[in-house]
Amino acid sequence: MPKSALIFGSDKYAIEIANSVKESYEIEFFVMDENEQIDFDGEYKKNVFDLSDEWYNTEKFEDVENTIVFCTLSEESENVFLVISLRSNFDSLPIVAIAKNKESVDKLKMAGANKVIPIEQTTAEIISDIIHNPIASKVLHEILYEKSDLKLAQIEVENAEIFGGEFPADIDWSRYRGVVVLSIMHKDLSTEFIYSSKSKRHELKNGDMIIVVGYERDIVEFEKLVGSRRYVNWSDWSW
């Protein structure tokens, strides 16, 4: 079954999100006004909704494994109301919301959004990075967002035996030449930075997640070694 991204709202951020995820998701827009003119010119399916509970009885939201919802209504109060309505109806539905400022971030999180992207704060952080750490910012930006040979990958461990019960801090990661291990997320959802586990003694187990940076072929080699796959059920993670 194809994955679907349900986008509420039709402003410039909604369109940008649709364009960014359209390769992996089937996009559907939800707008409040049927006559609303939007930029996508029939490229995506358009539905009409209101903020009452009646229209939620739809199968679209039931398949939480293959559905992700983006709430991008420009009116902050309506956006919060939409998130809280969705969450009250669908417990496990992955919801990503766009917020203008910090105040809205807190409200959207409390309303039940899995992830909130604050526009102003994020932009400010990027400006700060560009000014203060221009090289680091450029490299990270290329790794994350642009067509760079370097890739960032999250790899789930399925063959933990190769580490022989060692703690992350004791493993000589340079053995895995080609990739740089940035971080480890344990199955119990606690993250730790690779060389900083002085206080935390937790050996690597199957199900843990390793975040690596490297070239594609080296990452593939590393994946083979730890017997892993680059897949994650997104809705399991919430910060």
Binding site: A5, V21, S24, Y25, I68, V96, K115, L140, I143, L144, L152, A153, Q154, L182, S183, M185, T191, M209, I211, R230, V232, W234, W237, W239
Partner: peptide, 10 residues
């Protein structure tokens, strides 16, 4: 959406 854990790490 593609790599939430990696994204959070960065």
């Amino acid at each position: 959406v593609g790599q939430p854990v990696a994204f959070e790490a960065i």
